[in-house]
Amino acid sequence: MAATKEEIIAGLGEIVNEIAGIPAEDVLEDKSFTDDLDVDSLSMVEVVVAAEERFEVKIPDDDVKGLKTVGDAANYILTHQS
């Protein structure tokens, strides 16, 4: 069954916590990965690969550039998950 937006945001929280050490509860929809969550461009690739695996979705490199906030990523996953 496809994940809900809340489940996706919670999952991204766990991923960002693992990669950048930010508490999962601080990973909120309006947060910017680079400006708020200490995720640089290399770590963003790690976030994307972990999210692809967790939510069974493909996020091509060209689309990663558009994912500035946690909400951007959650919406992308929501509409692209299988």
Binding site: L42, S43, V45, E46, V49, E52
Partner: peptide, 10 residues
Amino acid sequence: ARRVSPHTVP
């Protein structure tokens, strides 16, 4: 290949 860490080179 997709799983190779982007931190590998640095």
